[in-house]
């Protein structure tokens, strides 16, 4: 338990453009323990989605991208792995849920077929019937009662909320140790989003899956995560336990974010700077948020 499941150290990323290098990440340090739900919160362009993509190795073939830093997953250096090694992790050890469930599912295959493919990545010898049984079982877990109909449907025949549940089931069916959730359900209605997030939280707790939850929505993060990293322009500015961050934000940027969120209790919206020198202040780490064994 002492070593984190995922440990990202001093991650930097830049892109070569015709105006020189454009830096996206300025040395991120992130760790996630087994079974922990960690949120990475930031605005558009902060580098939060890019971080998830790096973990999945999606920029590896891009010659214009420059990396540095270590990514340690389960004691293995993810950043040094070959494409094949990484590929064998994906879908099995690490899985992912994206923003728009309907477009993340393949429109030309039935849900059942896609489930089968996902199960085959973990167990290439699995029979169709066995796969079907597991799929039905998992669809029940995400509160889909008419699993047979869903497995025989295409993604476009189902509602957004239904597709999101299917995505959650597919992401968890191989019992990954890490789930990357990039703005899950942002494309859905608020009520549907609330339901699916509750479901997802229950399931990952049950299965002891660690989650890196990427979002811009502070309210959603507060309800989902154990621990929070706030990211601003490629720098982590504050991290700590969720209630510490929300009840007692310390970094000027976090404070501005919190103040800017409109409240359902009213009170108007204060005048807040959308940019400020103080947002670049050094990181604030709440007690209990630091790395185990790390001197702080």
């Amino acid at each position: 338990m002492n070593n984190p499941l995922l440990k990202i150290t001093n991650l930097e990323l830049g892109f070569n453009t015709f105006q020189g290098e454009h830096k996206i990440l300025h040395g991120l340090n992130i760790h996630i323990k087994a079974g922990e739900r960690v949120a990475l919160v930031g605005e558009s362009g902060s580098g939060k989605s890019v971080t998830a993509r790096i973990i999945l190795g999606m920029f590896d073939e891009l010659t214009s991208a420059n990396f540095s830093g270590d990514i340690l997953f389960n004691e293995q250096r993810l950043d040094l792995m070959t494409k094949a090694q990484k590929h064998s992790l994906r879908g099995k050890e690490i899985s992912m849920i994206f923003q728009d469930p309907t477009s993340s599912l393949n429109p030309t295959f039935k849900i059942g077929q896609q489930f089968y493919e996902v199960l085959r990545t973990a167990n290439p010898k699995i029979k169709k019937q066995a796969a079907n049984k597991i799929a039905i079982d998992w669809l029940h877990k995400v509160a889909i009662t008419d699993a047979d109909r869903v497995l025989n449907s295409y993604a476009f025949q189902l509602s957004g909320g239904m597709n999101q549940r299917v995505m959650i089931a597919m992401a968890l069916v191989n019992k990954p140790s890490l789930l990357l959730a990039d703005e899950p359900g942002t494309a859905l209605d608020v009520t549907v989003q609330a339901q699916t997030l509750n479901l997802m939280r229950e399931l990952v707790t049950q299965e002891n899956t660690a989650v890196l939850f990427i979002s811009h929505n502070l309210g959603v993060v507060r309800e989902f995560a154990d621990r929070v990293y706030i990211i601003y322009k490629g720098r982590i500015v504050e991290q700590g336990k969720t209630h510490d961050i929300f009840d007692n934000p310390q970094h000027p940027y976090t404070q501005a974010l919190m103040a800017a969120v409109p409240r359902i209790t009213g009170g108007g919206i204060p005048e807040i700077d959308d940019t400020s020198e103080r947002y670049y202040d050094p990181i604030f780490i709440h007690k209990g948020g630091e790395e185990i064994g790390d001197p702080v």
Partner: peptide
Amino acid sequence: RQLISAIPVIDKSEQILR
């Protein structure tokens, strides 16, 4: 009520109202 109850909130007074 159902709509308001589904809103993710960030502070305690909001939580109470919800």
